[in-house]
Amino acid sequence: MTQNSAESELDLRGVLCPLNFVHIKIKLEEMNSGDVLEVLLDDGEPMRNVPKSLKQEGHRILRVAPEDGHYRLLIQVAE
């Protein structure tokens, strides 16, 4: 699996849909294309919705790692 170091981080544990997605969107817009953002996302609804919306906007999810009750995602900003 790709090893990428993140340029930025967001801890979105406890943040509900669709606010978590909005936080990510704002952060991604500040970043350059190709940059990587690391995000902590709750299991359940956030994991069901957010990755799908990110893909729709053209971003790439490089890695999904389960942690205790949440997930660590690496997201690469769209070209």
């Binding site: 299991d43 994991m47 069901r48 990755p51 799908k52 999810i61 389960p66």
Partner: peptide, 12 residues
């Protein structure tokens, strides 16, 4: 497939 399991998570 890279085994990330997002599809499994996404399936309601």
């Amino acid at each position: 497939c890279n085994g990330c399991q997002l599809c499994v998570k996404g399936c309601e």
